[in-house]
Amino acid sequence: MSAASGLPAGQPTAVDNGAQIARRRQRQEWWISLPSVLWLLAFFLTPTLIVLAITFKPADPYGNIGAGWTLDTIRSLGNPNYPSIVWRTIWISVVATVICLVTAVPFGYYMARAPEKRKALLVMLVMVPFWTSFLIRIFAWKVLLHPEGYIHRFLRLFGIVNEGDLLLYNPEAVLLVLVYTYLPFAILPVYAAAEKFDFHLFEAALDLGCNRFSAFSRVFLPSIRRALVTAALVVFIPALGSYVIPDIVGGNASEMIGNKIAQRTFIDRNLPHAAGLAGILTLSTVIPMLIVLGVQRRQARVTVPRRKRGAT
């Protein structure tokens, strides 16, 4: 590790010294990188690749992975049920992303223009959901939407829903809770970008004859477009992989790919099938993921995606 200090005592020839330092530096790099590289290779990359391999394995009757190779899983993915589930997963995720973006923009805009003191409070209030348990937040909605819950009673008061109508167990409930869960993560990047925006530009646009709407859409929005991409991805990718939300507030008519994976794993105990479905989900997340890497890679600053694991 002595290369860090880098100052050898004597004065060896420059060439010798340079080669030695380079070698030491390389050795140092390996020692520092190795622990995390090895861990992630073993427990992240290998499992990800194993999913693909197991798609081509048969299931054995005990719920484990059988010997030999087969195309059974690939054939069963042609099952007419699957395209409709994949399609539903995509549309629910797209609509959730759009709602989050449309809400996050004015929200983040207001936060950025608020007085300093209120700004800190607002950031805090948006951050709190990030630290609170997702399961609890989903459960809170289940209680509210329940036929005995406040929202149902409130809507009944105005005759919008009837006694027997269900607010739960449909795609709209899933959509609502998805938005509830991911909206804070869409707001934060928009706010961060809006904070850096120079609002004098806005006034200049107004002076030059823009109306408020076109100043907003032609000056403000383009300058925060990077944040909009980030915001869209932190909602869209986890939404595609949703499992708990449709499981708790959704019903049969709102199953998503995640539910099917869990069903194949825990109920049918057909691991190769689960692997095949996971393969489909991987494919549909790889493309947006490559965009993120392309946009964020090797930028001057690293941004930590403000998204939380847990009960997606």
Partner: peptide, 12 residues
């Protein structure tokens, strides 16, 4: 892993 949906990491 930051952008990977949880369920993929779980099943993997």
């Amino acid at each position: 892993p930051l952008v990977m949906p949880d369920i993929l990491m779980g099943i993997g």
